[in-house]
Design a protein around this nucleic acid. Structure first.
Lengths: 72, 72
DNA sequence: CTTAAATCGGGTAATTAGGGGT
DNA sequence: TCTGTCCTAATTACCCGATTTA
């Protein structure tokens, strides 16, 4: 069938982001409202977050999820 | 990948739309039923979605994933 | 024509949004 | 100031069998 290019950005749910930071999903929502996290909205109003941005923030906080060894 | 004419309207399956929004294909179906998405029906009753419309909705949600070529 | 995957429906749990208060 | 919890309403995810698609 017509396989489209999978250049699409990988998105995470609020729960998935919360699990990575060990915080409550509501806290992630507050970060999004405060503009600390870029949020995408589903057509129903639920938030989705860019995986790359979350990983970067985690790395910037000194926490490496290390499925990849740090380059620096 | 498939070589498709740019003049033709590119249609996406429910799964492809769902992957871009990080939701379940059933949710995309629900959006179509709610009139939030324009849907084309195959002769068997399956839904197809306009790629341009999906891209616009994603962009309106705060995500611009236009790495390939500008939709002008 | 056969096989495997996807999408149809419906129905029911789980998640999320938003506000308020600790 | 920041975070976790309580509440209700809305949205989304997973269950099934049957049909369509590739």
């Amino acid at each position: 069938m017509a396989t489209i290019d999978d250049t699409a950005e990988q998105l995470l749910t609020p729960s998935e982001v919360a699990a990575r930071f060990r915080v409550d999903p509501k806290t992630v929502t507050r970060w999004a409202n405060a503009g600390k996290l870029s949020s995408i909205r589903t057509l129903g109003g639920h938030r989705r977050f860019r995986r790359s941005e979350v990983e970067e923030l985690l790395a910037a906080s000194g926490l490496a999820e290390d499925h990849r060894h740090p380059a620096a």
